[in-house]
């Protein structure tokens, strides 16, 4: 139920007074209600649950998280290498 799929906003429009977006999920287009994420702009990613955008993806945080994890990966690889050399 709490499944959320990230998709890219390709169009923003209004329907019956409700703010909507066309969202692209890897090639599949779907109409998504963006009533609670009115700040979203074209090209941004939203987290979509049951036809409704719950939040907007923060690019900077996504990049930062992966960078930290890559650093961890390198750190562990170095540890393993040192273990082998001993």
């Amino acid at each position: 139920m709490c499944l959320g799929i990230p998709g890219k906003v390709t169009e923003i429009y209004e329907q019956d007074g409700t703010l909507m977006a066309a969202v692209d999920f890897d090639g599949v287009q779907q109409a998504v209600c963006i009533a609670t994420t009115p700040e979203v702009t074209l090209g941004q990613y939203v987290l979509v649950h049951a036809g409704f955008a719950l939040n907007v993806l923060s690019d900077t945080e996504a990049v930062e998280t992966l960078k930290i994890l890559r650093d961890l990966q390198e750190f562990n690889a170095r540890l393993a290498e040192e273990d082998q050399n001993q």
Partner: peptide, 10 residues
């Protein structure tokens, strides 16, 4: 849970 609540409220 709190994920569906705003949608239902809307």
């Amino acid at each position: 849970f709190e994920t569906t609540a705003p949608i239902i409220a809307s």
